[in-house]
Structures are given as structure tokens and as C-alpha cells.
Design a protein around this nucleic acid. Structure first.
Lengths: 197, 197
DNA sequence: ACCTGAACACCGTTCAAGT
DNA sequence: ACCTGAACACCGTTCAAGT
């Protein structure tokens, strides 16, 4: 809807320079670096950056879009439909790992995911699909929303964003959210692991 | 340890003015207001504020201390020892409600709780006590740490900090965390509610 | 239509001068 | 010992001038 009008060629080139620079700078120094540095690295004026990306969240979402598109596709491909809970677990673990690629992104995840970038849309859609699958199969509570999932991913990212990757702590925390803090008592966890073999 | 040396009387009065002003300003406009406004409201120079509270987190923790002390005490009083899971649930719900008193505090909760204020110490101690009780009674998983609890409270606060209080959404999210996203399958929730009557 | 960067506003933090 | 607030550094955002 908003990108229907094609950009002039120099504008298009600048846009891509900004995205490439943002990727570099965010990777090096986190999602909270000054946008001046991104503009300088891209070799454009700060005004040009603001013209294309009025907010930091929009720049982050655009920079992340390709990565999120790939993630959503790979999640979809890996889902054999055999074990909905396992698919959701894997999705959550990877969503957190991807969020932690840029330090400081965790606190902005909810906002960033609401930007209508292809990557954000694909990631949300894939999450909603896995959630619905789990609920249809009766292995996920029906009173859970996708916002709850994002809330959880944010929490885990915040708690782990300064740790190394790959991170077993993430696996633990995802497990906490999937299975709860409360002991499952007489219900063995084997109930869930049995299908994975 | 650090507050053993008594302050000069004018310094002590200024400290209390700063805390009173911070309480007002944080309540009105959130935890991210400029500290200049706090100093102005308190009628002290900005340097005096920095001298007493070198970081925003220290000022927040000090401002919150009395509230947190009261919260920890009331949690302890309300805990009859009959239902460890219910006590933990209530603690979490109230921790989130208290965090949401100042908008913008959610993202700082983990940092603020690590400041050695009486309120922070009491709140952490009470949380650890309830966690240990639940684990001893076998109703809480033994691989949960207090940091996990804080991680969760942060997530729930972030997701709800702009909503009205009291907030049923918080109750739902605490339930998600306690009982997990996964269906408990053949295990009825009555198992947990039975003891509450 | 787009780009540039100076200019403005704002905020955090320090520190010389004062009591 | 403590207070003050000017000064500095830094960052986000806008917009007049230019192509």
C-alpha cells in the first residue's frame, strides 16, 4: 500500500545504503546507537534517513525484514505437522535467538513486530499459525493469544540478550513458559517427548 | 554499609525532598522523566540529586523502597503456608501491579531490584522464600530460579503497563506463567483451586 | 522529488565556585 | 561537607536551501 509508488533511482540506492549501514552498525553496537552514525556510515544526510525511516522501530524492522522472512520460511518448512508443541517450542527458541542478534532489540520487539514489514508480517503469521495448530490439536491452551507469545519472547530475550549464542538458558526459559513453573505432578514430561522420536 | 555515616542535616533534608519530588513526578509522568524536573520540583540543584543518586535506577529504587517494604511484609503476612502455589501467584500479581505504578519502570525492574535498597532486598527475599516453599512442597519445578521469576514479572509488566488497574490481564498472564502455555491435558486445574476454598 | 546539514531543542553529567 | 547551576557533550528532529 505505502510502497506502491516506485522511488527515484538515487532514492532507492540511498535506501539500500542505509539498510546495509544499519545492519553493520546495529550488529556492532546494538539497536540503540545514534542514527547519526548509521547515516554517516551510509554516506547520506541524516535528513534522508529520517525521510525513509521516521522512527527507529521502522528502521529496525526494515533492517530485520530479510532475516525475519527467512526465519518464518524455515520454521514453516521444518514443521512436519507431527508435533505442534515441538514446532511452537522451536519457533520461540529461534525467535529469541534472532531477537538477540542486535543487543537492545529485546525491549523493542513488540513495537518492531507491529511494523508492517514483510518480515514482521511473515513472522507474526507463522507464530499465529503454530499457535492455532497447537490449540486445534488440544496441546496448547485456548486462552493464549499471539500477544502472549510475543510477551514471552520479549521476557526471555531481555533476560538473555547479553549471553552467548547458542544459549541453553533460552531453551530452559522457553520450557518454563511452555510447561509452566508449576510441577506437572502426576503428568510425566514423557507425554511430550514421546512423539519426537 | 554505605549509609553508616550520618548525613549533615541539610543534606538529609534535601535527600528527603528529592525522594518526595521523585515520587510525585514519577507518578505523574512515568519513570523516564528528565531528572532536571525532579530536582526543580525538589527545589535543589541538579548536582545535589546526582550526588545522592548517581543513576536513575538508584533514585527509582530509593523512591520505591518504602512501597516495596510494605509489599514484602504484606505478602509474608498473607501467606498462611497452606498453598505455596497460590502464595506465589499472589506475589507475582502484586509485584506486577506495583511495578506498573510508575509507567516505564517495567523495563528497569531487573536493574532496580538489584539495587541494595531495603525494599529491593525485602522483595527479593520474599520472592526467594515463596519459591523455595513451593519447591519444597513439590508444587514448583526445582529448576526455576528467582531470576526466572523476575524475568516473567518484567514481561508481564511490559505487556500491561499501559492498562488500567486492577487488571485481569495480569491475572491471566501470571496464570500462563505458572501453569504454562501447554495444556495440562488430563490434569484438571481443580487440583490447584481445591485448596483455596 | 529528493538530498543535505545547519540549527534548534532537549537531556545527562561534570565541576569550578561558593557557603 | 555540601550545594549550586553554568558549561559541556551528545542526541533526536526539523526545515530552509539547494540540486
Amino acid at each position: 500500500m505505502s510502497d506502491q509508488v516506485p522511488l527515484r533511482s538515487d532514492a532507492r540506492r540511498n535506501r539500500e545504503r542505509i539498510l546495509a549501514a544499519a545492519e553493520d552498525v546495529f550488529l556492532e553496537r546494538g539497536a540503540n546507537v545514534t542514527l547519526d552514525d548509521v547515516a554517516k556510515r551510509a554516506g547520506v544526510g541524516i535528513g534522508t534517513l529520517y525521510r525513509r525511516f521516521p522512527t527507529r522501530e521502522e528502521l529496525l524492522a526494515a533492517t530485520y525484514s530479510a532475516r525475519f522472512v527467512a526465519f518464518a520460511a524455515s520454521s514453516r518448512d521444518a514443521d512436519t505437522g507431527q508435533d505442534p508443541l515441538r514446532a511452537l517450542r522451536s519457533y520461540l527458541e529461534q525467535l529469541v535467538e534472532h531477537t538477540n542478534v542486535y543487543r537492545g532489540l529485546a525491549a523493542l520487539l513488540g513495537t518492531v513486530l507491529q511494523v508492517g514489514t514483510p518480515g514482521c508480517i511473515a513472522t507474526s503469521a507463522e507464530g499465529r499459525r503454530l499457535l492455532a495448530n497447537g490449540q486445534a490439536a488440544g496441546v496448547v491452551r485456548v486462552d493464549i493469544s499471539f500477544d502472549d507469545i510475543v510477551c514471552v519472547a520479549t521476557a526471555i530475550s531481555l533476560a538473555t540478550e547479553r549471553e552467548a549464542s547458542p544459549n541453553p538458558h533460552i531453551v530452559h526459559l522457553v520450557d518454563v513458559f511452555l510447561n509452566g513453573i508449576a510441577s506437572r505432578l502426576n503428568l510425566s514430561d514423557d507425554r511430550f517427548h514421546a512423539q519426537q522420536q
